[in-house]
Design a protein around this nucleic acid. Structure first.
Lengths: 96, 96
DNA sequence: AGCCATCTTATCTTTATCGGTAAAATGGCG
DNA sequence: CGCCATTTTACCGATAAAGATAAGATGGCT
């Protein structure tokens, strides 16, 4: 279960981005000036229609003054922060 | 201090990626098959020479069985997980 | 030294991001 | 209702990612 790449990853990140921007009462135009990313590009990212590059997300996060990881984490499962490694006894079967 | 986009963001992510892959004793070839991303592309990402897209990082994280955020967080400042928003009384000055 | 696995780098093609601009939706608000 | 800000969408050109493949480089190991 859940082996796809989370099809709404982009939409989720976009939603968080938009919420963050709204929190600071910024328009796309203003964020565009802060980031150097055009407003249309920001719109596409926020609406989950564009697969942004890592440095692009980093610029936006920097302008919004939040760590990049904030854009990716579900506030819900953010509780499990502290233990990450998958137990190491993980076998890939006949995949390899 | 540190207002740039963190010039070694890609190198840092690459290092974490490589460490994660080493932990599971995977070769680039094997990870390539698991992710659908070519081994050369993985190599470029791990050496910080390529600015990967978000879904690309997501595929790799999924194959390595770690949350995507793991690739972006410095284990050092991972302690501060829990409070993110920058206090809201943040002013952008005459930037806008 | 020679072999072998692994990783790196290079080249090429396809595809997508991204900035710019301009034009359409959307949404208040008087 | 018509304005106006904001956002969305569409097109363009330039740059870059990503797959494929092949050629080097690196390193271990007998």
């Amino acid at each position: 279960m859940t082996m796809e790449i989370e099809p709404n990853l982009l939409a989720d990140v976009g939603r968080r981005l938009r919420a963050l921007r709204a929190d600071q009462d910024l328009t796309l135009e203003q964020l565009a000036r802060l980031t150097g990313i055009s407003a249309p590009a920001l719109s596409l990212i926020e609406t989950g229609k564009r697969d942004a590059r890592l440095t692009t997300l980093a610029k936006i996060a920097a302008a919004l003054r939040v760590p990049i990881r904030t854009l990716l984490e579900d506030p819900a499962d953010a509780a499990s922060t502290g233990g990450d490694v998958p137990a190491e006894g993980y076998d890939l079967g006949d995949y390899l």
